[in-house]
């Protein structure tokens, strides 16, 4: 059964890049959001199993989304995909419950490695 996956990034290029870089054997139904507020709406109304989450976004940033997921006890895995590679930021998102951190730009190799590591493929 396909996993419902949300890709949240304010950049169309980044969303397309990530979508195209997912492994061919990753059975997923993809939905997208272009900022944190849109992402929360999707998470509150759809059964999403996995989120690929950017951090630097307008309206509500990725840290805000992680905080909301935690506060509302939303049941989903989150993989952060971000250009904000500072160690303190990586530590912060992991403390907020992110499963993994992938440095942008997301490549097929990086995605496959993380999905494999956590048994998602």
């Amino acid at each position: 059964m396909a996993l419902n996956v949300l890709i949240c990034d304010d950049s169309l290029l980044a969303r397309n890049q990530l979508k195209k870089s997912l492994p061919a054997d990753f059975d997923a139904t993809i939905v997208t959001a272009s900022n944190g507020l849109e992402a929360l709406t999707v998470l509150q109304t759809q059964d999403i199993g996995l989120v690929f989450l950017d951090l630097t976004m307008p309206e509500l940033d990725g840290v805000g989304v992680l905080e909301a997921i935690k506060a509302q006890a939303l049941d989903c895995l989150v993989i952060v995909v971000s250009a904000d590679i500072q160690p303190q930021m990586q530590q912060r998102v992991m403390e907020l419950g992110a499963l993994a951190f992938i440095q942008k730009p997301a490549s097929a190799d990086k995605l496959a490695a993380v999905l494999h590591k956590y048994g998602l493929i």
């Binding site: 290029l13 971000s82 904000d84």
Partner: peptide
């Protein structure tokens, strides 16, 4: 997006 990634590295 390219600027965003480059800015992240510079930051």
């Amino acid at each position: 997006e390219l600027v965003n990634v480059a800015m992240g590295q510079a930051s």
